[in-house]
Nucleic acid binder design. Structure first.
Lengths: 179, 179
DNA sequence: TAGATTGTTAATCGATTAACAATC
DNA sequence: TAGATTGTTAATCGATTAACAATC
C-alpha cells in the first residue's frame, strides 16, 4: 500500500495532484487505505501502453548507442528488434544479444519486423534520412540524441534529448537557488 | 533579426509567450523590427549564466560517459575539468583531450579545481558516495544518468536523465495522437 | 465504530493568450 | 510617414490546491 502523500514526495508534487491525476484515468485507490502498489503499477503500465512489450529499433551504435542498447535490454517492457549502424566494421557484431545490422537494411527490416519506436544516436547529418525511413516503416515515435533540425513526417512524434540544454538549465537553477 | 513568431514556431510555443518570457528578463527586442540574433543569444547566455565557461566534472567513463565526454568537449561554454572512473585500467587514458583519473581522487581534485556542475554516468550503486563527494567539493548542480534513489545534499540541485521514462512517455504520446 | 485516505468539487492561483499602445 | 513588431495590460484559460463527503 502506498498513500498519495508518499507518491507526491517521491515525484516532487502534492498529494492532491497525485490523486487528481490518477483519478483522471480511473479510481485506482482504496478509500481509507491508499493504492495497492502492484495494481497501481499495472494500471499505469496500461495507461502508458507498455503492458505489452514495445518493439524498438536503435540507429547508431557508437559509444552512446551501445550504452543505450545495453541499458534497454534490461528494461522488461521494451523489446529491441534491431540495431543499425552505417559502419561496415560493426556489422555482425553484438552488443549484449543484439546484432548490429547495416543501416541501409533498415527499411527492409521494418517491413519484416514492425517497430513502434526508434532511437537515434548518430551524428546530426544523417538524421533526416533515418527519420524518413522510420516513418515509412511505420514507426510512430522517435527519440533522438542528435539535435539536427528536422522535417517531422506526418503522424510521427519526435522527441529530443539535449544534454547541453539540460546542463544549461541545471546551471541556471543551481545559481538561482543559491541566491 | 528574428521575430517572436519565428522563435515561437521553433520552440513550439506562441509569439505572445516568447515576448512575455523574454521581457521578464529585460527588453531585448526592437519595436517594429524584432530581436537581433547575436545580442539575443548574448542576453540568453547571460540569463543562464553560461556567458563565462562553466567548469564540470564527469564521473563514469563507460560507453555513456565517453559519449558525453566527447560531446561536451565540443560545447564552447562548458569546460571539462576532469573525468573519473573507478576502473584502474582506464586511468591515464584519454577521451579527446581529457585524461581519466581515479574516482577516489575526486575529492582532492575538486579542492584544486572547483567545478560548478557534475555529470554522473556510473552504475546506480555508487551514486550516493559520488554525490556526497561532489557536494563537499562545492558542486552545486548534478546531472545523473543513474536512477538510484538519493539523499540530495542541502544546496545541491539534482536532475535525472531517464531514457526509459522518455521512451514510455513518447510511446504514450505516439499512441494518443494516433487516435 | 473510529480513523484514515481516496475521489471530487469549488476556490485559488498562475500561466497563456488576445489585444493594443508604444515606437523603431 | 506608413508598416511592423515589441512590451505590456487585461481577459481567459487551465492547472493546482484546499476541503470534505464518501467509504474502506
Amino acid at each position: 500500500m502506498v498513500r498519495s502523500g508518499q507518491l507526491a514526495r517521491r515525484c516532487g508534487t502534492s498529494a492532491s495532484l497525485v490523486r487528481k491525476d490518477l483519478s483522471y484515468f480511473g479510481g485506482f485507490g482504496i478509500k481509507g487505505k491508499g493504492y495497492r502498489v502492484e495494481s497501481l503499477i499495472d494500471s499505469i503500465e496500461k495507461i502508458l501502453g507498455i503492458n505489452k512489450p514495445v518493439g524498438l529499433v536503435l540507429i547508431g551504435v557508437g559509444n552512446l548507442g551501445s550504452a543505450i542498447l545495453r541499458y534497454l535490454q534490461s528494461v522488461p517492457y521494451f523489446t529491441i528488434l534491431g540495431a543499425f549502424d552505417r559502419d561496415q566494421k560493426k556489422w555482425g557484431k553484438k552488443v549484449g544479444r543484439i546484432e548490429i545490422l547495416p543501416v541501409l537494411s533498415l527499411g527492409d527490416f521494418l517491413r519484416e519486423h514492425p517497430a513502434e519506436l526508434g532511437v537515434i544516436a548518430i551524428p546530426p547529418d544523417g538524421v533526416q534520412d533515418v527519420v524518413n525511413t522510420l516513418s515509412e516503416g511505420g514507426v510512430k515515435g522517435v527519440l533522438s540524441f542528435a539535435l539536427s533540425e528536422l522535417e517531422v513526417p506526418e503522424g510521427m512524434v519526435l522527441q529530443f534529448v539535449d544534454i547541453a540544454a539540460e546542463l544549461e538549465f541545471l546551471y541556471y537553477k543551481a545559481n538561482k537557488s543559491k541566491k
